[in-house]
Design a protein around this nucleic acid. Structure first.
Length: 654
RNA sequence: GGCAGGGUAGCUCAGCUGGUUAGAGCGCCGGAUUCAUAACCCGGAGGUCGGGAGUUCAAGUCUCCCCCCCGCCA
């Protein structure tokens, strides 16, 4: 029976270029779509880009272009990359599109009107990189553990969404629908998180701090928090699809979200409660996958791009990587990727397995049967195990896909092919060919082998669409995989039609030798080096222009350091007594302990002091000014600015 | 600290509701074969299934305790 299915990937945040993580999730959605299409289901597949928020503004600044140009460029790269590697998404939504903005505002208004959004004041520590407030207990050494950045104390009034109100309703939903979040471990994680009270969610950012976002419809001094905006794409893209039609009713209730485990909370908590408040039914299912690891570390956008999709495509072909993805990763768990692992798997499964099986079989047909696909003769006991395996796949393969057990599905196909290799060795068709009386046996064996290749290619085509299409075309299997032919007919035994003449034996999966691997590894290393250098040479962006008047408000003076002390209990500060030619030296705390662990060495140094800085009360005393120092870079180099000539304390610095 | 997941051959892992001598791939050693992409096939070495105790006719598989890794939360 034909089903309707709506598949989404998360919208990718455009502060980074496409990498293996984006590629995997999108390939996953693409493969599942192709599978369902083959099964005769009707599928709608959405992906796109998330383009608002503070981090985007920063990334644009860093790149030295205006924000709109920046997001256009990166979003373009995503869309283009997916096109070049033939992903079959039916739409590509960008959160900066009018259709999305309008919908977000409509929902905000609706939720505001119903009383689930309220205005309140909040003081907290904000991590810019996380784009959220942190609690004290989350911090490690006063820094955000994810980004190793000190959060800023922010006090502001904002709008809040009554997320906490929907806590019990969400728990009930998850308990009533145990398959709603898969695999179970992630369901458990969400449930255990929900055991504690659920706080309301701050969903606005004042424009004084951030202008790049969607205006709140009820207060134009604020823009919408990026997650409250981005998640709504799953619906906004249906309300007005690429063709301008409203397909919400048709698809929404069949929605299946794919996502990586790092955005579980936003999808399993923020999102459903938002939908509840907006009066929209929840999506049907969340499928949560793990990370691709490189050695020990996570390959994420913040740790650089080890695999660039298009570069990999040129080097080894993206479909071969898709095979690796599904063969190697147990859905939901992390898995390792290295070029060595990839090549190993490719050589053993695709080159020595599928490729070689096709090659050896086809070449016997070419040599002995004039290249013509033989008729299926009565089978004997020898074929029964293979036929039974193939038959069983008609049931297990769709079930494994539905259960997201892709690695099992692939392994089953591989087992069928391995059994066929054994079968061929046993039957030794090259011997049968020498015996004129055994022509029928020869035909039977070759038909059997070719049929296994055909069935394998049908089953693998959602994963490797082009390569499998080539195999099928070569074998004379011309029936489309678009659902118009029943799956049982396509993948069932005996589908291979006789009489087709085989062309030259194709080498679809040439072995990758050590030399090629080494070349690629070297080029990857080289590219990484260049990137790291570019990264570390990046300058802090220059701040907004000021006038000479602005500058002259800062009173800089020459000061001589008379005393330098460590501050007990502080990791960063040292205490300096600085002579500015006044009655007595000023006490100044400076956060430079990391580079001046022996503050007494600074005594006698002539430095630049901000003399009119408002005294600041600190935990260890009052700081009456600021000593200027320079620094930067990944190595956090730092150095106090000093004079080498004859200046007196109190002299002005201009 | 609480909760969840995991700890099985050199490496990556499979082993569902307990049941024959614990499996696969890769790697290694030996053999066979020649249709094929130095391929394919067969055989071998290699595991006290994290440790300990218990339940059972029977435990990698269930129970309890402990150790280690990863994740979420505090």
């Amino acid at each position: 029976m034909s089903r309707t299915i709506y598949i989404t990937t998360p919208l990718y945040y455009v502060n980074a270029q496409p990498h293996i993580g984006h590629l995997y999730t999108t390939a996953l959605a693409d493969t599942v779509k192709r599978f369902h299409v083959m099964m005769g289901d009707h599928v709608y597949f959405l992906t796109g880009t998330d383009e608002h928020g503070e981090k985007i503004v920063k990334a644009a600044q860093k790149a030295g272009v205006n924000t709109q140009e920046f997001v256009d460029q990166v979003a373009g790269t995503f869309e283009d990359t997916w096109k070049q590697i033939d992903f079959t998404n039916d739409d590509f939504i960008r959160t900066t599109e009018p259709r999305h903005k309008e919908f977000v505002q409509e929902i905000l208004k609706r939720v505001h009107d119903s009383g689930d959004i309220y205005f309140d004041q909040y003081t907290g520590l904000y991590c810019v990189d996380c784009e959220r407030y942190m609690t004290m207990t989350e911090l490690v050494d006063g820094k955000c553990p994810d980004h190793e950045v000190e959060p800023v104390e922010v006090k502001e009034s904002n709008y809040f969404f009554r997320m906490g109100k929907y806590r019990q309703q969400l728990i009930d939903h998850i308990e009533k629908n145990p398959e709603w979040i898969r695999p179970v471990r992630y369901k458990n994680e969400v449930l255990s998180f929900l055991k504690q009270p659920l706080e309301d969610l701050c969903i606005s950012r004042p424009k004084t701090r951030l202008e790049w976002g969607i205006d709140l419809p009820f207060d134009d001094k604020y823009v919408t928090y990026v997650w409250f905006d981005a998640l709504l794409n799953y619906v906004s893209a249906l309300k007005k699809n690429a063709a301008g039609n409203d397909v919400f009713d048709r698809y929404w209730k069949e929605c299946n979200h794919f996502l990586a485990k790092d955005i579980l909370k936003t999808h399993a908590i923020y999102w459903p409660t938002m939908l509840m408040a907006a009066g929209i039914p929840l999506p049907k299912q969340l499928d949560v996958h793990g990370y691709w690891l490189s050695g020990e570390s996570k390959m994420s956008k913040s740790l650089g791009n080890v695999v660039k999709p298009l570069v990999f495509h040129e080097q080894f072909g993206i479909e071969n990587l898709r095979y690796f993805f599904f063969r190697e990763m147990k859905f939901g768990k992390d898995a390792g990727f290295t070029y060595e692992l990839f090549v190993e798997r490719y050589n053993s499964d695709l080159a020595n397995g599928l490729g070689n099986l096709l090659s050896r079989t086809a070449s016997i047909v070419k040599k002995n049967l004039g290249g013509v696909v033989p008729e299926q003769h009565n089978t004997t006991d020898a074929e029964q195990p293979l036929i039974a395996m193939a038959k069983k796949l008609l049931e297990t393969y769709p079930k494994n896909f539905d259960d997201r057990a892709f690695h099992v599905a692939v392994e089953d196909i591989r087992s069928l092919m391995a059994a066929t290799d054994r079968y061929i060795n046993e039957m030794a068709p090259w011997k049968l060919a020498r015996d004129d009386e055994r022509k029928e046996d020869l035909a039977r064996v070759l038909y059997t082998a070719l049929e296994v290749v055909r069935i394998s290619a049908v089953l693998l085509s959602p994963i490797m669409p082009k390569k499998c299409a080539q195999i099928l075309a070569y074998l004379g299997e011309t029936r489309p995989l678009d659902g118009s032919v029943p799956f049982e007919g396509l993948a069932g035994w005996g589908g291979l039609s006789f009489g087709h003449e085989l062309g030259d034996v194709p080498r679809l999966f040439p072995r990758i030798d050590e030399k090629k691997l080494k070349e690629v590894l070297e080029s990857v290393e080289a590219a990484k080096g260049v990137e790291e250098k570019a990264e570390s040479d990046d300058l802090e962006p220059i701040k907004d222009e000021i006038t000479i008047d602005d500058f002259s408000r800062v009173d800089l003076r020459v000061g001589i350091i008379r005393e330098g002390h460590l501050v007990e209990g502080s990791k960063k500060l040292i205490r300096l007594m600085v002579d500015l030619g006044e009655e007595k030296p000023r006490q100044i705390f400076a956060g430079i302990k990391s580079h001046y662990a022996q503050p007494q060495d600074l005594v006698g140094t002539k430095v630049i002091v901000v003399a009119n800085l408002k005294p600041r009360k600190m935990k260890f005393g009052i700081s009456e000014g600021m000593v200027l120092a320079g620094g930067g870079g990944d190595d956090n180099r730092l150095c106090v600015a000093e004079f080498d000539g004859d200046l007196e304390p109190g002299d002005t610095v201009t």
